[in-house]
Design a protein around this nucleic acid. Sequence first.
DNA 1: CGAGTGACCGCAA
DNA 2: ATTGCGGCCACTC
Length: 106
Amino acid sequence: MTTPEFRQEVESIVKSIPKGRVMTYGQIASLAGSPGAARIVGGIAHFGDPDLAWHRVVNKQGGLASGYPGGRSAHKMALEKDGVIVSTNYKVNVKDAIWWPSNENH
DNA sequence: CGAGTGACCGCAA
DNA sequence: ATTGCGGCCACTC
């Protein structure tokens, strides 16, 4: 079976993202066991379970994804609806909104 | 079944 | 500061 544990890990991590916080693709990929497979996270995000909060996932720059259904505006609205502050340029404050499980106290 | 693509990241010049 | 390239795994056609 070659269980795609990578995707399972990614989904589990995305489900573990608390409300009002966001994570980066690279961080999720690293936690999933493959640092550098950030692209895969994006690929899973596009065809993964819609029940997950992919809108809480942003890139390392804190910028919103470009392939989000509805565009960045919908993504921005979804984040603000969760309590995440998004800049006018569709970017979240990496120093305040990004959630780091290994260093959440920053 | 085979090949290509993808919502990214990091480094080098 | 910007631009260009390679790399990873899973999913779709």
